[in-house]
Design a binder for these strands. Structure first.
Lengths: 225, 225
DNA sequence: AACGCATTTCTGGTATACAAAATTGCATAG
DNA sequence: CTATGCAATTTTGTATACCAGAAATGCGTT
């Protein structure tokens, strides 16, 4: 997609990984000089990388004020989850119609992987398995543009989605929903799969309040923006 | 969003406009030096601008091979229209639920503007009115993230959508569909509005063949990519 | 002691210079 | 006459130097 030079491309990947995995948190400052020293390159590729990341929305740069890991407002968080739910629903609908049998078998395996990690102490392990399950469905929609678009929004929401796991009972409920979605896809029930996925991903009602309650300070912009 | 320096931001706007309005066509080469001379700036802001445009997908840059106005494959074209239809459908669904009365009045005016330009000689005039009608619905969904996302995909499809108008009979059919969509939104029938919009935007069956038939060479990448 | 203004310093924005890679054209050989 | 390979030129990628604007700090005044 956004192919820059080799150095810049490397930086994009590294920074992206650090943001998505939570090493870099929303609001963290990304100083050009320190980054260039840390990676042993000049400021130019660093700027190109930040530019690319700004394009995909993972970082925000204010003119003359520097670049930070994107932190969003509560309103944007709600908006993005609303869109995310609908994008994933579309993936599920299309997957129900298009996913080959072999890939569905694989999806079953990924679902079982999630179940196996249900009570696991390491929340990250479940998170990763969960990501693989969802990505398998993205791939199943057989629309690589939709797949990229969906992954992009998911990346931007990653810091916030990660928080949801820590809510007690969430993992078990999530697994049950996976099973239902899987069944709908397997039976080719497109609309059912879409609706279930939409509800699975959407954050509404109490769940939204719970999420907002555990978002650390700095993850969200103050109201005065 | 992607706030770069003043010069770069200007360039982004200008180039974006030229691409969306068709002055720059898919496959056109964007030489850094000529652009910098033409706009009277150095290569740095030009590169930043191209970087940003690459992020939004309007241009494609291959390492050491330069930047061109993005030209897509037939497969991508189909994929993008599929997603576009669904994004606009979501806008319409939400607009049916959330659009204030005053804005609906405005939407009616825009619809009439489209109708008035139906037989007009200047196809571009209708195209612009059509864009305003659709954008009013994007705004009506009251989800600015969805609005941005939808506009982004529409921009990328602009060079191809523009071609559709030239198909005889299309404009009249389009106007009838507008009226139906408008009515559904006005009555708060979310699912109906969504379904109608999805069908209005989707390019399928014969319409797809017609579109592909009039796409000029260079607008689509050769199969060997 | 506190508030406001000026100066300094730090960081981002722009320009330019340099290096590396790719394309193109010419020359030579088959 | 054509094809292949080498060289020259063009163009991108990276580094560095310079400039401008914003934040921070310190001094003076009230």
């Amino acid at each position: 997609m956004a192919q820059n030079g080799k150095l810049a491309a490397d930086l994009v990947q590294k920074l992206e990984r650090d943001i998505v995995t939570g090493i870099l948190k929303p609001g963290d400052k990304l100083d050009e000089r320190s980054l260039s020293e840390r990676f042993g390159v000049s400021r130019t590729p660093v700027r190109e990388a930040l530019q690319t990341l700004a394009g995909s929305g993972l970082v925000a740069t204010m003119p003359r004020r520097g670049t930070i890991v994107a932190s969003i407002t509560v309103a944007e968080l709600i908006e993005m989850f609303e869109v995310m739910a609908e994008l994933e629903a579309m993936c599920a609908r299309l997957a129900a119609r298009r996913m080959p049998r072999a890939d569905i078998e694989n999806l079953i395996a990924l679902s079982e992987e999630c179940s196996a990690l249900q009570g696991h102490a390491d929340a990250d392990a479940y998170y990763e398995a969960n990501v693989r399950f969802h990505e398998a469905i993205y791939a199943g929609c057989r629309n690589s543009f939709l797949e990229r678009q969906t992954k992009n929004v998911r990346n931007r929401l990653a810091p916030y989605r990660r928080l949801q796991l820590h809510r007690p009972g969430r993992v078990k409920k999530s697994n049950n929903e996976h099973a239902e979605i899987l069944s709908a896809i397997s039976n080719g029930e497109a609309d059912v799969a879409g609706k279930l996925m939409q509800q699975h991903v959407a954050v509404q009602g109490e769940a939204l309040n719970d999420l907002l309650a555990i978002v650390p300070r700095g993850y969200l912009e103050p109201l005065a923006s």
